[in-house]
Amino acid sequence: QEIVSPESYIKHPLQNKWSLWFFKNDKTKTWQANLCLISTFDTVEDFWALYNHIQLSSNLISGCDYSLFKDGIEPMWEDERNKRGGRWLITLSKQQRRQDLDRFWLETLLCLVGETFDDYSDEVCGAVVNIRSKGDKIAIWTADFDNREAITHIGRVYKERLGIPIKMTIGYQSHSDTATKSGSTTKNKFVV
């Protein structure tokens, strides 16, 4: 009789259960009606089964988003866990869609499911990639824009993981400031 090690058949559980959402911009529908839950997973193996099955971000048409959020948190400002929060925002140039977009998004997903931010991972709600003709965006959303210690730790680690040069900065903006901004830019609460 062959003895099979549990390693070969037990999947590797993640700390959290995660949901992947897809948004497609159909102007005949409401914002919420354009948002759909693709799938939920809580193991390393099921994460890859999903990731390998879906289109890369760079193949999506303009106006689409992917969002990965902890199970039970909806990918919108209004959710109870998001409404006092904000995001570390990575804005990409048009050329970066070819060079960096898919790499940055995968790195972002790995940071989330791997709980890269240590104890501060509890502050993470999710991440979003926006495909836009004027420039794509990737962001990690956190729960509380007043939690300076957690936010700056997450920002520093995230910037390093993406390989963003030290001399370039990334900014953290509260969702309330983004929602009420008057111009095209939102003021940064934190910068790393």
Partner: peptide
């Protein structure tokens, strides 16, 4: 403690899912 996985460990599973 948390179930943390580093990037190389996670990447090692990318093409194993189909085999299990």
């Amino acid at each position: 403690g948390k179930r943390q996985y580093n990037r190389d460990f996670l990447l090692g599973f990318q093409f194993m899912a189909a085999c299990t």
